[in-house]
Design a protein around this nucleic acid. Structure first.
Lengths: 227, 227
DNA sequence: CCAAAAGTGTTCCTAGTACACCCATGG
DNA sequence: CCATGGGTGTACTAGGAACACTTTTGG
């Protein structure tokens, strides 16, 4: 397998971008601006450049369309079928990202023709992007079960009803209010604030903050996150 | 992002090949035959050809070095750092495979300079292949926990002590004999044979066979494999 | 007859699940 | 004062974990 004689390929990255707003899981997708399939709905993506790692490419693509940096992003997998892209043979490395919608640059996203859509409103997507979405959802569920990544989708300060609502969306099933509280508070990784969120009830719900340092410390001592 | 102006890359596949023999998890690795790092230990790999999917490339590479087809193989992930291969910028898609060592073509493997080594005997590997191995082991553990893939590493007929030994290797911890039996037999997915394996004891251990059809049927009715 | 591995049940405890009422407050 | 969502405790059950002795048989 000499390097010189091996064929070269177009390599792209595609980002499955999740957000959480109005109690719903949402996905950031764009109207494609190039042929083929111009105008069709698609994940945000782009080609991997020379001297650029695939991780860097994904970060760049995300930054260019959302204006956001420093967010949670993880590789999903590589999609390598020959015919997957009808324009050319393109190998795509998919990443999924979790974004706090409130903190991201909506104006920049709109300039790129990007839109946040609820999961049940997702139209047909190009190529194998629907497959990517399903794979990403499955991965998100698995990952969220044992890792505290849900907080990446919420504002820094959040209430327990909000958090529970998020997990109900991720798992697509109702969670018992009392059991959920018991479980999450028992881990002792949330900091209770003196503020209340009165936007959804008259009584108001206490706000909490995820204490990452505490979580890391407890993890060293055997804590296993599970929700 | 026009297709024409995008750069092209060398894309390789690397296979992390697991086997189980003499009660130990083993890895099939080769002595590299091309520069750079000629003679160093490496996973089996090769370049993705035109008109060949990455899955097909992995299958081909595996077949060429082991002579085996129709084995369990799954994508691990894509490794895309710019400097990961010191010979050129190569993007690698890693796969992990599970092989019944007894059924594979040792002669063919030897011709390719391939060797089965126990996990604790693995020498230094080139590039990021040690990272790949660690990632593959983590994935194997996760996957084996909830999917009946362990059987891919055993002969068609196996004893329960053998099976338990395999899981002890995968999880790197001892498993209680009685609890293990209870759990695996309760799933009712093993067919008990009239043969015994007398190679490891005078009393002999009953042989079993994984009943895949039964497993699939039970899965439809809500069975969740877990061990 | 004995060494060596195979095979077998029971108890305890933890963690998940199900479930209903009071509280605080803005309008 | 009442409608609305927030917050709280207990009882039951199932499943995981710990644990020791008997059986078989080749040498």
């Amino acid at each position: 397998m000499p390097y010189e004689s091996a064929p070269r390929h177009l390599v792209a990255v595609d980002c499955i971008i999740f957000g959480f707003e109005d109690g719903k899981l949402k996905l950031l997708i764009i109207k494609r601006k190039v042929a083929p399939m111009e105008g069709a709905w698609s994940m945000v993506g782009g080609f991997v450049q020379e001297g650029e790692s695939t991780n860097e490419a994904a970060t760049r693509v995300l930054q260019q369309t959302t204006g956001i940096q420093d967010i949670y992003m993880d590789q999903l997998m590589c999609y390598g079928d020959v015919e997957r892209d009808s324009g050319a043979r393109v190998i795509s490395v998919a990443y999924y990202a979790l974004i706090r919608i409130s903190e991201h640059d909506r104006i920049l996203a709109n300039q790129h023709g990007a839109h946040w859509l609820s999961l049940h409103q997702i139209p047909e997507l190009i190529f194998d992007h629907t497959q990517m979405l399903n794979d990403a959802l499955a991965r998100l569920r698995d990952k969220a079960h044992f890792h505290p990544i849900g907080f990446e989708l919420l504002p820094e300060k959040f209430s327990l009803p909000q958090l529970r609502n998020l997990y109900e969306e991720i798992y697509q099933r109702p969670l018992d209010k009392r059991n959920f509280r018991k479980k999450i508070l028992a881990m002792d990784i949330l900091e209770k604030l003196d503020e209340k969120d009165k936007s959804t009830s008259k009584k108001g719900a206490h706000l909490y903050r995820f204490d990452k340092k505490k979580y890391n410390a407890l993890t060293q001592h055997g804590l296993v996150f599970e929700i």
